[in-house]
Design a protein around this nucleic acid. Structure first.
Length: 427
DNA sequence: TCTGGGGTCCTAGGACCC
DNA sequence: TCTGGGGTCCTAGGACCC
C-alpha cells in the first residue's frame, strides 16, 4: 500500500505559522509578480476566491472580505517543506519517501499490515503537525492514483475523515470511484475530461476504470493512459521512484515587472536567469551542453486575449558541457541579439538548460586544466556566499544593477527561517 | 493597467544510415 | 515509368502535474 501526504493550503499555512492571528481567517498567496492566486485558505475558498485566478480580478472580493494577501516567499516555503519531508523520512525511513512536489510526498507503506494502516496514517498526520506546525492530509490505497483519490476525500470532508482516508477494501474504492468525476482524477486534465464526457459519455472514475486498455491507449495519450486505467483498477503501474535521479532540464523564466523594450534590460534579465539556472545545475552536480533562451512579446492587440502573444526562441549547442556561469552567460546573452527586434515590447523571458550530464570535475579532475578547476571552485564559493547571505551579494556584471524588469513582490513576508536579519522574534 | 514558474512523459514525423 | 525495408536519433509539440 502507498500513501500520499499532502500539506493543506501549503503556502497559506506557512504564512499563518508566523502570524497566528490569521488562524481561522481568510488568507491568499500570490504567484510571482503578484499575478495569480496560487494558494487559498479554506475561509478564502468559502468567500469564492478562485484558484489560479488573476489577482486584479479577485481584488474587489478580497477587499470586501478583508482577506490577508501575501506575495510568494519561496525561501520560507522551501525551508518548511524540507522540515515536513525530513519528518516523514525520520518516521518511515529515507528510502520509503518520495518527494513529489514542494508540498506532497508519496510514502511506501508495504511494510505494514492492512489493519495497521489507519493508525499509521493518523500518526503521520499528527507527528508532522506537532513537529512542524503544518497540517497535512493523508490518503492510503493500493496504487498512487487511488491514493491521490483517497487524499481528495480526506481534504473534501475534513470533519468526517480527520484528514485521513484509507482505502482498505474493494467496496470503499468502488464507492469513491463512483463519486469522483473523471476530471478530478490525477492524470486527467481539462482536455481529456472534456473529450471523455463529450465523445464517449464517460463521466465518473468508475466508468473510466472499466474501459479497455485499447481505448485508453488511443484516447488517453498512449501508454500513459493505459497506466492510469490500470492504477484505477488497483494494479500498480506507477512505482515508487528514487530521488537520486537528477533533472533532465533546468529552466528559469520570469515575467517582467513591467514590459520592456530596451535590449540591455533584456540582456541583464537573461544573464540573471542564466546565473540562477547555473546554480540549480551545480546543486545537482551536473553540467549542461545545450542552452536555449526565449522571449515573449507583449501582445499589442488586446482583443486577441492575454495568451496570444508570440514566443520566440533559439538555442546554442555548447562545445563542451559546463556548469560555469560565465561560460553559460556568454552564449545566452549573444542569443538575445538574434531574437531582439526594435520597437517591440517584451513581457517575459527565460533560459533553459538541457543536455544535462553529471559533472565529474566537481571533485577536481586531474585531466582538466588547472584554470578549469579554479573556476569550478570559484563557483562553489559564490554559491556558498550567496546561500548564506542575502540574495545575490555576489553576481556577474552582465546581470546589471538597475533591474527595471525585476518582478513585483509587494507583499512578501519575512524570511523567518532562512535569513538571520529576518529571524522570527519571540518577545 | 494588471493573467506564474518549473517540470515530466510521450508521440509523430523528419533526417539520415545501410 | 518503375523506387525497399529496417533502423536510429533528434526535435517539436501536446498533454499533464503542482
Amino acid at each position: 500500500m502507498k500513501a500520499i501526504v499532502d500539506c493543506n493550503n501549503f503556502y497559506c499555512s506557512c504564512e499563518r505559522l508566523f502570524k497566528p492571528w490569521l488562524e481561522n481567517k481568510p488568507v491568499v498567496v500570490l504567484s510571482n509578480n503578484d499575478g495569480c492566486i496560487v494558494s487559498r485558505s479554506d475561509e478564502a475558498k468559502k468567500f469564492g476566491v478562485e484558484m489560479a485566478g488573476p489577482y486584479f480580478m479577485a481584488k474587489p472580493l478580497i477587499q470586501k472580505h478583508d482577506i490577508a494577501v501575501f506575495s510568494s516567499n519561496y525561501n520560507l516555503y522551501g525551508d518548511l517543506s524540507w522540515r515536513v519531508m525530513e519528518t516523514l523520512r525520520l518516521m518511515l525511513g529515507k528510502k520509503n519517501v518520495e518527494v513529489y512536489s514542494v508540498d506532497e510526498a508519496f510514502v511506501d507503506l508495504s511494510g505494514f499490515t492492512l489493519d495497521q494502516l489507519p493508525a499509521i496514517a493518523r500518526e503521520i498526520r499528527e507527528t508532522v503537525e506537532q513537529w512542524t506546525g503544518i497540517r497535512v492530509s493523508v490518503g492510503v490505497a493500493p496504487t498512487k492514483v487511488l491514493a491521490k483519490l483517497a487524499n481528495r476525500f480526506s481534504k473534501k470532508e475534513k470533519q468526517r475523515t480527520g484528514c485521513v482516508t484509507v482505502f482498505d477494501s474493494e467496496e470503499k474504492i468502488l464507492d469513491a470511484l463512483r463519486k469522483t468525476a473523471v476530471g478530478d482524477i490525477w492524470g486527467v486534465g481539462r482536455r481529456y475530461a472534456h473529450s471523455l464526457q463529450e465523445n464517449w459519455g464517460i463521466f465518473d472514475a468508475l466508468q473510466l476504470r472499466n474501459v479497455s486498455e485499447e481505448f485508453a491507449r488511443t484516447h488517453l495519450g498512449g501508454v500513459t493512459g493505459v497506466r492510469l486505467v490500470k492504477e484505477l483498477r488497483g494494479e500498480i503501474a506507477r512505482e515508487m521512484e528514487d530521488e537520486l535521479t537528477n533533472k533532465k532540464m533546468i529552466a528559469t523564466t520570469r515575467m517582467f515587472g513591467s514590459p520592456v523594450s530596451d535590449i540591455n534590460a533584456i540582456k541583464e534579465a537573461i544573464a540573471t536567469y542564466t546565473s540562477r539556472a547555473a546554480e540549480k545545475l551545480r546543486r545537482q552536480h551536473s553540467a549542461a551542453s545545450m542552452i536555449s533562451i526565449f522571449v515573449v512579446t507583449k501582445d499589442q492587440d488586446h482583443m486577441l486575449g492575454f495568451n496570444k502573444s508570440g514566443t520566440i526562441s533559439t538555442y546554442t549547442n555548447l562545445p563542451a558541457a559546463t556548469s560555469i556561469t560565465n561560460e553559460l552567460i556568454k552564449p545566452a546573452v549573444a542569443m538575445v541579439d538574434r531574437l531582439y527586434r526594435k520597437d517591440t515590447m517584451y513581457k517575459k523571458a527565460g533560459v533553459m538548460l538541457s543536455g544535462i550530464i553529471p559533472d565529474e570535475s566537481i571533485q577536481g579532475n586531474l585531466f582538466l586544466s588547472e584554470t578549469k578547476n579554479c573556476e569550478r571552485k570559484l563557483m562553489d564559493m559564490i554559491d556558498n556566499i550567496n546561500f548564506s547571505q542575502r540574495d545575490d551579494v555576489l553576481k556577474f556584471a552582465a546581470s546589471g544593477t538597475t533591474r527595471d524588469w525585476k518582478m513585483r513582490q509587494e507583499m512578501r513576508s519575512g524570511r523567518y527561517t532562512t535569513r538571520w536579519e529576518e529571524l522570527f522574534e519571540v518577545h
